[in-house]
Design a protein around this nucleic acid. Sequence first.
RNA 1: GCCCGCGUAGUUCAGUGGUAGAACAACCCAUUCGUAAUGGGUAGGUCGUCGGUUCAAAUCCGACCGCGGGCUCCA
Length: 569
Amino acid sequence: MDYKKYWHTSSHIMAQAVKRLFPDVKLGIGPAIDKGFYYDFYRKEPFTPEELEMIEEEMKRIIRENYKIERIEMSKEEAKEILKNEPFKLEILNDIKGDIVSFYKQGEFIDLCEGPHLNFTGEVKFFKLLSVSSSYWKGDEKRESMQRIYGISFETEEELRNYLRFIEEAKERDHRILGKKLDLFSIHPEYGPGLVFWHPKGAIIRKIIEDFWKDIHLKNGYEIVYTPHIADISLWEKSGHLSFYSEYMFPKMEMDENRAYQLKPMNCPFHIQIYTSKLRSYKELPIRWAELGTVYRYEKPGVLHGILRVRGFTQDDAHIFCTLEQLEEEICKIIDLVYFFLKSFGFTEYRVFLSTRPENFVGTIENWEKATKALENALKIKNINYEIDPGEGVFYGPKIDIKIKDCLEREWQCSTIQIDFNIPEKFDIKYIDKDGQFKTPIMIHRAILGSLERFFGILIEHYKGNFPLWLAPEQIRILPLTDKYNDFCQDLKKKFETKFRVGIDLRSEKINKKIRDAEEDKVPYMVIVGEKEIKENKLSLRKHTKGMLGFFTLEEIEKKLNFEIENKM
RNA sequence: GCCCGCGUAGUUCAGUGGUAGAACAACCCAUUCGUAAUGGGUAGGUCGUCGGUUCAAAUCCGACCGCGGGCUCCA
């Protein structure tokens, strides 16, 4: 089923309804999007929920009236006459190349549009208008603010219901809500919007991720480095950040002795300093330096979002210094590492993008082509399907971006592999080659998880807070049936504690209440102890969301849990 | 940054000009129970901040800060 066409027609039906109800509203654009459709209208006031209902009713009428949808072609001159009262449409008309343009007409409504569309308005069966928001005309903040109405439509009522349920499901997974409920992190806007405070339960997950990350990097030919959070402003002048990145940088800190320091928005200039601390030989290359480097960027107020978009974050950064000949193999190795990490966290679906040379770039076209070729070859060697994003590379080099799909099929970009010709030249870094000549290495920037903050937010939503055992902050909670068994349970806790992260609920509550609270805290395993367990020397094991598993010995439980942890289940 | 909406107890929310409320959580007491909420009590709020209107402001108006939905941007 080609939903693009379906949704595009739905958006025209919505525009027709709006035009009938509010004739003064001017039309913008109304495309189908990944999931649904929208139409931008120019109007002073936003649409109210009541008006949305009116629009929905009118749309139902248009669908019932079942107009034939006709494609009409005409010259631009004729089109201008039809669109004389639609300033935004006229602007689009002027941008269109060629002399003939197409319109689509249904009933009294006609719209400049390339199509394609359905044949009749009655083919749209079930729809819902979802939200209203504003957007800039042509995405340009200097232009008019349009009112955008989003909607979704399907052929069957069931599909519509499923989609609405999906929206509800996504809300339940919201990392901002789960983060608060599960006591993982907080943000204190009065003391710093976009700055994340990791609570003990969130911090233990971060520690596990960091340890895993360091371990795997050391086993894969990387060396770990640490660099400062601030440096003299001159470093940022030299790197070029002050001229091309200053709008994202926190203001400099003026000091005495004529010095000013700058909080780092990126780690690369620091790694370069380590590189230049001595003379390098070709024998050392490739050099792979990794750092969980905390950077600060002054993101615009409106773009902050939970811990997915923040102002202080820790990148799982690495810089690889290598020769052009080594480039392809290094990229292959990075891709392997990316896939290994993503799989470990339960992400198995990816989309890969190769971004090529943008209009503004540094370096020679020859180098750009070599680097792009290297990225492309690596993808081919790895047999990876990829899409090309023409002109979307960073100004200093081409890149590969890997987007992961979470369990709701939502896409997130974490991993990025960027080739950089610029910075090695800016800092004039060299190595001595076989022939005794000084040469400039190529640098690769790469991040796998992206940032720990964003990745953690994605993980929370992906798992809905039900972390796999290896990540769960509290792996087991011991629930004594009554106070009588508290001492026994305290001893049991000591035994488990040598191998697992264990909690205990000693409140004089009923077992049902203790279970309910443990379930709500999303603790993977509950061990319930009463008369029976002590007598038979077996423990009652309950799994989160699954319920009672049966009776097991301490050893059996340890073995089972260890297996799950080792396999990251 | 722009458009719109919102800001009341730790949390979720009620309260539209006249003495600040509920539930959950916390604390205390009672209860000792077999796989998703035992009962009772106590404590907790300059109603985001500043200013204005008014005899009187959580409530009306303005500015600022922040949050949310989008736009733009991005790890």
